[in-house]
Nucleic acid binder design. Sequence first.
DNA 1: GAAACCGGCTAGGAAACAGT
DNA 2: ACTGTTTCCTAGCCGGTTTC
Length: 716
Amino acid sequence: MLGTTLKLQPELDVEKMSVPLLLQDKVALVERYVAGFPDLQRRLLALMDSWCQPGFDIKDVARQYPQVASLSLEKLSPKVLSRQVLRLQEQFGMVPALCPHAATQQRLAALRHLCHKRFVEKSLSQENWADHVQGLVGHSPWLQEQLSQLLTSLGDPGTAARCALNLLLPEDQLPATVAAELSRLQLQGRAADADSRPNVKDMKDQHYQLPIPRENVYLLASREDLARHEGALLQPQQVVGVDLEWTPVFVAGGRPRPSLLQVAMEGRVFLFDILALTQPPAGQGAQAFSQLVAQLLSDPSITKLGYGMAGDLQKLGTSCPALAHVEKQVLGGMDLLLVHRQMRVAGMPTPGVDRASGLRGLSLLVQQVLGTTLDKTQQLSNWDRRPLCEEQLIYAAADAYCLLEVHQALCREPARFHLSGDLAGSQRPRHRERPGTQEPPGLREASASPRQVPVAVAEATIPRVPARTFRVVCDNMLQGLARSLRCLGVDAHVLGSSEDHRRAAEVARLEGRIILTSGQPYHTLRAQVGAGRCLLVDGSLKAQQQAKSVLRHFNVRVTHEDIFSRCQACNSDQYLKVSRDMMKQLMWLSSHQEGPWTSGDKATHSQERQEPGPAPEEAPGGSTHDRPCRWLQAADLCAEMPDMLANGTRLQLARVPAGVLRTPGLRHFYCCTRCGKVFWDGSHLGRVATHFRDVLESAPGPCEPSPAPSPAGSSF
DNA sequence: GAAACCGGCTAGGAAACAGT
DNA sequence: ACTGTTTCCTAGCCGGTTTC
């Protein structure tokens, strides 16, 4: 910081200054340090790129800086580091050749991703996969070797051999089993990927089928084509489905450009070949195309249906400057993505049809509304290829046409999908409800009814579980849920932000916990621990609503004694009870301590500390809750520090407002033995009891909520 | 009237999710 | 894999209220 302020950078060694900061994940600081010094930027990039070399171990660097505390080496994995390097390369305006290793690492990450899509998700056809992979691997021997290993680890030797043959991978880099299989294939002369797509026709029949004849799908690639169909396209009062296709780019910085614009209307689909129509960019074809599209989008009498339409239209501007910001000129647009969200908020009751089915986005909507799924195997295909293959044309037409059919179904039976008759009203963006405002009825219903198991069924078939014995592990996105559950006495472990989701399965197995997740890994986790041990939590709900859902789902019994029986901050259920007088002493001592206690002080105070407060059975009836705790004893405190427990935990005395000590009727405090947080019976107790009233009422405990919470703000 | 506290608001980071 | 958007969570700020 000092070097940056005094502009001493040219005098200092950029490596020695940057490396400790990089090891602590303080890239932003390093960026500021080299800002305005192109030579230093170049050297920094070269250094970081060298860390992306195959086989490089960042721990070797860390060992040279033993004085650096709080290392963040996980942020310096080749994948993360290469992303940073390429970002900086673009930001500094340096040539890509300066970062060869980072670029290679990025290509390897893309290869892994594509192999996952092809061999694990199976959502990518062999041709499309090979198309992308060929472009990524190029002639790099190292990437060819990595690909060979990936293929061997993900598929059987036969599949790996066929891919190696099609991609012309060098035989000497293949594992022995794959090489043997390859030789066998070559001998048999069966290079074709015969069984890579088994029963293609049968698979396709299960998917949404374009319900119009093939000849009603028109490819428009010239000005004449546009003129021929302009009348039909601009027919007033009609409803059209709009979609866009572009070729995905798997390397950072590559701006994808749209290739095909689909407009579907009753009985036919028009496919605009954007590549052909916008060549040359200022030509008559481009002008006619942009005029027609602008006219279509800005006509309020034509309803334009899309799914995430704004994003699609934004991209149009990159191919056709005349259509830049066209998304702001749309009149009569209806985004079914927003309608879909409204359906989710209202709690689509259809069992088994939600994210748990593995579908998402438009595919999920089509499944929920039309009962069939969209075939997405052409989604990541090469849309820049000309001519487009038949499968691509059918896929593109179906993707736009299904919007029309979904819209018709929703208009026909809005109530079936928990929508009002006014679909346009359903697509208003959802605002965060302010505390105290009434929740919409749909939201209340959603929160009261768990998504996967109806309440009545759950209560009838699942035995009641006391909150204190219910143990869960939450993913990092559900921190709010974990805090709410701890509030109610549930043992809730939260994964760290850097921990992999697989850790959840490990914790669940070792500690007998239920997994709560809001993310994609739900399917993997459920497969690992079993369906009944893993719950997909609706991330769109607020934490307290999520908590109620979980409790109802697992039929958890919460009593008033459970409230705050566990520390919200650290999940510990071990408290030390401290009398008000003792707390006064501790706070006084902690605010007056200047280093270790003197021997005189120690003698005086240790005498005072011999009286830890009344024994539990002597406790006056001021406390409303009987928490699992014991009275603070002298032995619990550290001899040298008045605010430290013998186990090394520092009590958070500074966070206790002085006024609380004078609150009438407040006689005890509770200190968490793990994190040192101090709690007392205050207004928060009443608030929580109120928030979870409906959950508590379903399981009344022997103890009623505090009738008169203390007026001062409090930690409980 | 000053200080402390509380609750609402907001910006920013992180993660999920939508598209290809 | 990427980009762009949305959402949640947290920290910090600010104004109103409470306490002394």
